[in-house]
């Protein structure tokens, strides 16, 4: 097969799929809409994504290592830290900046900061999230 031939071949087909993770056992072709794309409501984003690890009651869990609680977590008081952690991950937590919009991140942070017994003052804005995105920095999200 010549390169010219493959060029035409490729041009014949519209592609929609992000390239599957290479060199890893994965679930194969995962097409369609992510559940996280369905809503900008903080409660929905929390239920569709965050609670898988942080738990429905946001109390986290402890095994060989800990998943930190978000309920009563003083790190949520300032804006910059939780915005950065959601965008780029921390430790085992994947970066979510690649699959969540600025609106979704602001929404879910405000949801968490005002629920589960939390009452942190001053809402996070999508503009702050946008400003925290570092141009060119990759999201290690595994999506």
């Amino acid at each position: 097969m010549t390169m010219k031939f493959s060029k035409i071949l490729l041009g014949a087909v519209a592609l929609a799929l992000p390239f599957a993770a290479a060199m890893a056992d994965n679930a194969g072709p995962q097409t369609g809409t992510l559940p996280t794309a369905q809503s900008t409501s903080g409660a929905t984003v929390y239920a569709n994504l965050c609670q898988a690890c942080h738990m429905e009651d946001a109390r986290g869990a402890v095994g060989a290592a800990a998943i930190p609680p978000l309920a009563g977590n003083k790190h949520l008081a300032a804006h910059a830290y939780p915005i950065f952690v959601v965008l780029y991950g921390r430790g085992a937590m994947p970066a979510l900046g690649g699959i969540l919009s600025d609106d979704q991140i602001a929404g879910v942070l405000n949801y968490v900061r005002q629920n589960f017994g939390n009452h942190f003052a001053g809402p996070v804005s999508p503009t702050e999230v946008k400003a925290a995105r570092i141009p060119g920095k990759l999201y290690a999200g595994g999506f």
Binding site: A27, Q30, L34, P35, I99, G142
Partner: peptide
């Protein structure tokens, strides 16, 4: 079911 990453989280929760 065998799903990975973004496809998995909602049901996983």
């Amino acid at each position: 079911a065998y799903s990975f990453g973004g496809k998995a989280y909602r049901i996983a929760g």
